[in-house]
Amino acid sequence: MGLIVGGVLDVDAADPWASVAGGAAGLIGLAVTLYALLAAAPAAAASPSSVTASGTRSVAAGGSIGAVATGDGATAGPAPTMPAAPSRPASGPVTASGERSVAAGGDIGSVSTGDDA
C-alpha cells in the first residue's frame, strides 16, 4: 500500500514510502508472531495430559509400563523388551481408578494384580 501511495504522489517519494511500509510490515509480523507464541503457551499448560491413580494399589503411567505387581507377594516377572516408542500414544488422560487397576499411556508389558498364596 505504501508503494502505491508513494508512486502516485511522486516517484522520488517512493523510496521513503517503501521503507516505511517495509518497516511497518516487519513490526506487524513480529507482533503477530509474539501474540501466537504467547497465546499458545497458556493453552498448552492448561490442558496437560493427566495421569491419575486413585484406587487402592492402582498404578498409572503416562508412558509405557514394563512390569507391575500390585498383589501381596506377587511378582510380575521380568519386564519384556519394550518398543522404543509407544505403539499408541495416549490421546487423553490416563486414569487407574479401581482397586489394583493398571493404566498406561503406552504399552504394558507384564502385570500381576492378584495375591500370591
Score class of each variant (00 low, 15 high):
1 M>C: 06
1 M>Q: 13
4 I>F: 11
4 I>S: 10
5 V>D: 08
6 G>A: 10
7 G>F: 08
7 G>R: 09
8 V>I: 15
12 D>V: 15
12 D>L: 13
12 D>W: 09
13 A>C: 00
15 D>S: 14
15 D>G: 03
15 D>N: 07
15 D>F: 11
16 P>M: 12
19 S>F: 10
20 V>M: 13
21 A>V: 03
23 G>M: 07
25 A>R: 07
25 A>P: 00
27 L>I: 07
28 I>Y: 10
29 G>A: 14
29 G>S: 09
29 G>R: 07
30 L>R: 11
32 V>W: 13
33 T>Q: 06
34 L>K: 08
34 L>G: 06
35 Y>P: 00
35 Y>G: 05
35 Y>T: 12
36 A>I: 01
37 L>P: 00
37 L>S: 09
39 A>K: 13
41 A>T: 11
41 A>R: 14
43 A>V: 12
44 A>Y: 05
46 A>R: 13
48 P>E: 05
52 T>R: 13
52 T>V: 14
53 A>M: 12
54 S>Y: 00
54 S>F: 00
57 R>C: 10
58 S>F: 06
58 S>G: 09
58 S>E: 10
58 S>I: 05
59 V>E: 01
60 A>R: 05
60 A>Q: 06
62 G>F: 04
63 G>C: 04
65 I>M: 01
65 I>W: 01
65 I>V: 12
67 A>P: 06
67 A>W: 01
67 A>G: 08
68 V>S: 02
69 A>M: 04
70 T>Y: 01
70 T>F: 02
74 A>N: 05
74 A>I: 08
74 A>F: 03
76 A>L: 11
76 A>D: 07
78 P>K: 11
82 M>G: 06
82 M>P: 04
86 P>G: 03
87 S>T: 12
88 R>K: 12
89 P>E: 04
89 P>L: 02
90 A>N: 01
90 A>D: 03
95 T>I: 15
95 T>V: 14
95 T>M: 02
95 T>N: 08
95 T>L: 09
95 T>G: 00
96 A>C: 08
96 A>D: 02
96 A>R: 00
96 A>N: 03
96 A>W: 04
97 S>A: 14
97 S>Y: 00
98 G>D: 10
98 G>T: 07
103 A>E: 00
103 A>H: 00
103 A>M: 04
105 G>P: 02
107 D>P: 02
108 I>S: 07
110 S>Q: 11
110 S>K: 13
111 V>G: 03
112 S>L: 07
113 T>N: 09
113 T>A: 11
114 G>F: 04
114 G>S: 11
114 G>H: 09
115 D>T: 08
116 D>P: 00
116 D>Y: 12
116 D>Q: 14
117 A>Y: 11
